[in-house]
Each structure stands twice: as structure tokens, then as C-alpha cells.
């Protein structure tokens, strides 16, 4: 169980109890969103991200595979930092299983950082992979993909990178990728998270 550290002194003591019900997770998300999150204008955010993507498309001469990779690695670098900030703000204790992890991602993390709550669904039988369905996506407001991009570009691929980076920092080695996107003409936007393995704390080489 997580104890309150110096960085998370703002978190309430109640959060350190077990994450028994998903309702608590939701409440934590909403409280932090309401009280401890600095908001910015949605259009500014959307247009900033939009201009990054469109600039990347130009810089890589419309090689959308490279753009996807670049967005992913940008996201990864955000994720490995953001998880620290996220845990400090929420003081959420360790998740007992991957189901709880998914709830925390959807109801807490997405709520706090993007004010959306994607549905968690399509669990695999072994409970180690799930899908997030986005009803709304603040990154892609106003966006219409150009014809040549609509088969290859994952416009919001930065989200995959963020999740990958953040989960890796809490010892969860995952594969994160988009399955479908409304921008491509699919009926829904679906992001798949697949747990490869739980990383063990390993001694750095030569220190045993």
C-alpha cells in the first residue's frame, strides 16, 4: 500500500485505503479534476496538438508510419513523467490487478488530464488486455484526415505513447495501440492495452 510521501502531501488521507469500489476511483478523479487541476482552453489545446501533427506530416514528407512512431515516442516521454505527477496528485494506492488498473486509467487518469471517461470493455479471457472506447476525443475535435492519411495515420497516437510510458514506470510492460478511429471512418475510436508482463524490480547490473 502506498503511503503519503512528500510530493503527495495534497492528497487526502482517505485515498490511502484500499480501492475497493470503482466508485471511489471515480470520486478521486472528479475531486482532483475539480480542485487540483489547472484548466486550459480546449481550442488552444486542440489546435496546438493539431499543428504538431500536421507539422510532423510535413516534416516526414507524409510518411505516416514515421509520424505514428514519432507521436508515440513523444507520448512515451510525456508518460514517464506524467505518471509521477498523477500519483502525487491522487495518491492512489497500488492496483491489485489489471482490472483496477483499467478503472484507474479510465475514470481517474483520463478524467484528470482530458476530462473524458473512456469505456473499458472487450476484456480478454485471461484478463490481461482490454479496450478503451472513446466517445469523445478532445485531441481530434475539428479534425478531418486528408485522403492519403486516412489509411495510415493514427491521429491520436500520442495517447498510446503516454499510456505505454506511464504503465512502464509502474512496472507494467504493456503494448498499447489503436484498433480503430472515427477519423478513419470507423464507427468508434478504440484503443487496445495489452499486458505483456509485470516487471520485477531488478538489481542494476554489477550490484549484487
Amino acid at each position: 500500500m502506498n503511503t503519503t510521501t512528500g510530493t503527495s502531501k495534497t492528497a487526502s488521507a482517505a485515498n490511502t485505503t484500499s480501492l475497493a469500489s470503482s466508485k471511489t476511483i471515480k470520486q478521486i478523479g472528479e475531486t482532483v479534476w475539480k480542485n487540483r487541476t489547472v484548466k486550459i482552453n480546449a481550442e488552444l489545446f486542440t489546435l496546438t496538438y493539431g499543428s504538431i501533427v500536421s507539422q510532423l506530416c510535413q516534416d516526414y514528407q507524409r510518411d505516416f508510419k514515421k509520424v505514428n512512431d514519432q507521436l508515440f515516442s513523444m507520448g512515451y516521454n510525456i508518460g514517464i513523467r506524467l505518471i509521477e505527477d498523477f500519483l502525487a496528485r491522487t495518491a492512489i494506492p497500488r492496483c491489485d490487478n489489471f482490472v483496477t488498473t483499467s478503472e484507474v486509467i479510465s475514470k481517474c487518469a483520463f478524467k484528470i488530464f482530458l476530462n473524458i471517461t473512456p469505456h473499458v470493455t472487450n476484456w480478454s479471457n485471461t484478463k490481461n488486455s482490454f479496450s478503451l472506447i472513446f466517445d469523445e476525443n478532445p485531441l481530434s475535435d475539428f479534425v478531418e484526415l486528408p485522403m492519403d492519411a486516412s489509411k495510415e495515420l493514427w491521429y491520436s497516437n500520442i495517447l498510446c505513447g503516454v499510456l505505454k510510458g506511464a504503465l512502464e514506470m509502474v512496472q507494467l510492460d504493456c503494448e498499447v495501440y489503436f484498433v480503430s478511429d472515427v477519423l478513419r471512418g470507423n464507427t468508434q475510436t478504440e484503443l487496445r492495452v495489452k499486458l505483456n508482463k509485470v516487471l520485477k524490480d531488478e538489481m542494476p547490473a554489477g550490484e549484487d
Binding site: 489546435l47 501533427v53 475539428f142 479534425v143 478531418e144
Partner: peptide
């Protein structure tokens, strides 16, 4: 305006 806000336009 909505069209103009599209980053690809």
C-alpha cells in the same frame, strides 16, 4: 470556421 480549425486545412 469548423473547417478552418481542421489542422490539415
Amino acid at each position: 470556421l469548423k473547417t478552418l480549425m481542421n489542422p490539415f486545412y
